[in-house]
Write a protein that binds this DNA or RNA. Structure first.
Lengths: 187, 187
DNA sequence: TACATTTTACCGAATGTTCGGTAACAAAGA
DNA sequence: TCTTTGTTACCGAACATTCGGTAAAATGTA
């Protein structure tokens, strides 16, 4: 049988799933292999620098997704600010699978991960802040208010993911998302 | 010389430090051994059920600390509500070392940990919620408001720890703690 | 042919765990 | 008192397993 080339998308989705749910050290090559459909050695063909390169690819993959589906939406001046906000928050709900998924920043900032990915996590969070600052300004906040608000939103999203998991109650996630939307639109 | 008994406190502090910073799977027996001063086999003498029993002990240890220093303070009717709140928040600052330490709930809710410790994490968070609901009521919130507020506080504390680490900016933690205090006292 | 991709088989190192044994004490019997 | 027995605390060495990673060959494409 001819070895069929596994699609890049399937590989990335498989890697992403494992790294998000297991963290960096917790993700074993066996799991990564099973999730992608590629044997270990084939993974090393695609990612010669091994596990770290796989995690880097996941980080870039998710960064791209967020850029396209969240940030680009929030900054799309073809839409009204409130529509932009709503669509951006919908994308975030999808990103975190309604509160079931774990944030990659969290998964990779434990253990060995924190030294390896500090820079990319820092960059990713900073992008969150500036995108949400922009939507705040578009919704008539002052720049100072918008900046504070953006930080609050980031904290609340990260926090509600942990609490939702810890309490085994996904409504914590959904309610927080609605609170965020209301706090922007009612002001 | 008879082998001197290593103090339980030193052992627990060592285990706690490693499990909090590394997570469950990330914490190796070698690190746990180094941090406690006990060889691997001696750790198995103290904790016959191995790594899981060590993590259980850490969870109980921290639960006790929080009970004594946070919850007991928040509910101490010998003090005025605002003093209770301030002292409780100070204990939380100490618990998380000004934002540098990682919450044990977060560390143990990744990877294999989530199945093993789900129950204890659930219980711990529920205690947080009821203690902060009490202080809210003592500060003239309605029970409904106090319950919502308690959930917000838990989310904010968990969230600001992640964001502070991700942005490498401890002021995120301290500012959030002050926001929490203000939001209780100004209402 | 030449090249790209996947696989099998394997490696040294590290993992969590257990075994066998040692040294120091306490309790009990003489 | 001296001795014996049992218990506690600890450790070196080995356990089976899994880890991340690699070489070489098989299998595909052009």
């Amino acid at each position: 049988m001819r070895p069929q080339k596994v699609l890049d998308k399937e590989i990335l989705n498989g890697l992403t799933k494992i790294f998000r749910s297991r963290g960096y050290e917790g993700a074993s090559l066996k799991e990564l292999s099973d999730a992608t459909g590629l044997k270990k050695a084939s993974l090393y063909h695609r990612f010669p620098n091994g596990k770290q390169e796989m995690a880097d690819a996941v980080l870039i993959h998710l960064e791209d997704w967020i850029n396209t589906n969240v940030f680009h939406t929030l900054l799309d001046t073809n839409l009204t600010p409130s529509v932009r906000l709503k669509k951006g928050l919908l994308a975030i709900r999808e990103l975190y699978d309604g509160g079931e998924a774990i944030c990659i920043f969290r998964a990779l900032s434990m253990q060995a991960g924190i030294e390896l990915f500090e820079e990319q996590i820092n960059k990713g969070m900073t992008q969150w802040l500036s995108a949400f600052k922009e939507i705040g300004i578009a919704l008539s906040f002052t720049p100072e208010e918008a900046e504070k608000k953006a930080l609050q939103v980031l904290i609340q999203v990260q926090g509600c993911l942990i609490v939702a998991k810890g309490l085994s109650d996904l409504s914590v996630f959904e309610n927080t998302m609605q609170n965020i939307e209301n706090s922007y639109l009612k002001a």
